[in-house]
Every structure is written in structure tokens, then in C-alpha cells.
Amino acid sequence: MKLRERLSACALSAAPFVLTFVFCSLILLLAGANPFAAFSQIISGAFENYRKIADVIVAMVPLLLCASGMLITFAAGLWNIGVEGQMIAGAIATTAVVRLLPLPAGWMLPLTVLAGMLGGAVWGLLAGLMRTYGKVNEIFGGLGLNYIATALTNYLIFGPWKPADGATMSGTDPFPANAWMPVIGDTRASLPPIIMAVLAVLCVYLLLRNTRWGLRLKAIGMNRLAAERMGINTKANMLLAFAACGALAGLAGSLQATAVYYRLIPSISGGYGYLAQLIVLLSLLRAEWVPFIVFFFAVIHVGSPRLELRLQLDSSLGGILQGTIVLFFLLMRGIREVVKRRQERING
């Protein structure tokens, strides 16, 4: 009996992966492709050589930063869907510093980081103010701000920050060399961003686990009214959560500009903000799970463009894989709870 229960528990936790595999295989067959070829292309696209593995790490940096920021807002029960816009705001602030301030090399990079965090925090606060004082649900506030940030980037690239030889979708002129994060060897990975991303996850883990502020945020997330009655200033704490998440997202955007593209491009946020949302859902808001899921998602993210080159398939298969796994995970969790409740009822 015990063994059977344990086996069925095992089967249930493996089920999202199996179902995702089956679902995506069906989609691939529908598109006339060989599922095994497609999956192996994704894997080899991500692990082919050490430079590809470095690319996986490069993709992990913004995901780790955004996901750890979102853990803070989720703890307070807030859906900060505006992380994309906060990334963009960080990248814009960083580009402004690079373009407008003639700084010596040693000062430039630290200041771009600060500017990025500030830009993201401001954008996060906007959504927060709309939520706390304007009573606009943060999903709509955040989304609207995402579109506005995108339009602002396009305006800057095609307007005031236009390259000398004409504006294109490839973005502004490259930054001067003193605003480039140093790379490791001949890879695209850079050490300072990796350190900052790891620190961010650690800090958020400790924040939510061991600090009063973390406890307060969780109290607000569980029951806002009760927290208010307990004397917690819920509005101020929610705003602070938005600002903290915005700062981390802004840092992610800033690093995309100084360590990946070395310029401001139209889609600088690259969907990482939305992807991080999926990651946090899959982690069940546990910081310790985030790095593993981020790694898994980054592998798919880096490997799937291969599908276009080798199999003439659209790289959106990567997004389908990521989306289906979260969907099946949520559904299976629901089924598990239903089964458990039913058993409890039978056992009295």
C-alpha cells in the first residue's frame, strides 16, 4: 500500500514532463517534423560547445534577476507583470548615462548599473502607485507600462538617439568601450553580471526567509486586511516591493545593454520578463528552486533558435515547451489536491 502510494506520487510529479513531451510531439508531427530530431536539436544547440554553454549562462542572468525580483512582489500577493517594461526602463536609463555623461572608465560601469536599477525602480513604482493609490489592478498598469516603455525605446532609437548613418531596428550606435562589461575568454559571458545575478537570488532568498520585511510582505500577501490591522503600512510596503522588483528588473535590462548587446535595441527585454513569470509560477514561490528552473528554461531558450536553422521550424517551439510544462504542472497540482481530498474523505 505504502509503495503504491509512493509510486503514484512519483508518477504524478513526472506527469507534467511526460505530458509536455507528448503534447509537443503532437504539435511537431502536425507541423510535419520529427519530434526526436527537434528535441535533440534543442539540446545540442545549447550544449554543443563551451561557447554555447556560456550562452546559456548569459540567458540565465536576466532570468535570475527578474525571477528573484518577482519573488518579492509575489510574496506580497502582487502580479508584477510589468517586469518587461521595468527591464526596458533600466536599459534606457543606462543608455542615457552612457550617452550623456562623459565618465572615466572606472566610474562608467558602476554608474550604469545604478542608473539601470533606478530606472527600473521608477517604472516599478509607477505600476505600484497606480495599484495602491489609483486602484488600477497591477496587471493592467504593468502591461500598459510595458507597451509604453517599448514605444519609448523605439522613439529614442528612431529619434534623438538615432545612429549617424540612419535609424534601423538594430538599435543605437554601439556604446564606447568603457561601457562594455568585460567578457570571459572568447565567450559572450561576463563575470560581473553573473555575480550580481547570483547575489540577487541569495539576497531575495534571505530576505524572504530571515527578515522582518520579508515576513511583513508575506503577511500582506496572505491577508492584506489582517496585515493592515496588525499595524503594517501595507501601501508603503507594497510600493517598496514594486520598487525592489523594478530595481532588479532594471538591473537585468541594464546588463542586457552593457554586457550582451552593447547598445540599446528595440526589443531589449527579449521576453525575459514574461518568461521569469512562468519560472516563478513553476517554483511555487520558493527561491531555492528558481536557479534550477532558470537553467532549464535558459537551455530551451538558447537551444530553440537552432530549429529555424536546421529544421526550418519556428523557434517559438521553445516557448510552447516552457508554457506547456507550467500549464501541466498547475493542472497536475490541482489533480493531486483533488485526489488527496477524496482520500481524506474516504478515510474519514
Binding site: 504539435i27 502536425l30 507541423a31 502580479w79 507583470i81 496587471i139 514574461y274 513569470q277 512562468l278 509560477l281 521550424l313 519556428d314 517559438s316 517551439l317 521553445g318 516557448g319 510552447i320 516552457q322 508554457g323 506547456t324 507550467v326 500549464l327 498547475l330 493542472l331 497540482r333 490541482g334 489533480i335 489536491e337 483533488v338
Partner: peptide
């Protein structure tokens, strides 16, 4: 997912937003 499986509507809705957009790109190519 919401009525029978007691999952958060916003979470499932958001996941489906992203998933359906990607499905439309892939199948619609």
C-alpha cells in the same frame, strides 16, 4: 483548472496567454 482543480485563474490565464501566442506563431508559420 479553476472550478474543478482549484488553481489560480490569473496564473492559468497568464500561462495560456503566452502559450497560445507561441502556438499561433509555430502552427501559423
Amino acid at each position: 483548472s479553476n472550478i474543478s482543480l482549484r488553481q489560480d485563474q490569473v496564473a492559468v490565464g497568464f500561462v495560456l496567454t503566452l502559450l497560445c501566442a507561441d502556438l499561433s506563431s509555430f502552427i501559423g508559420k
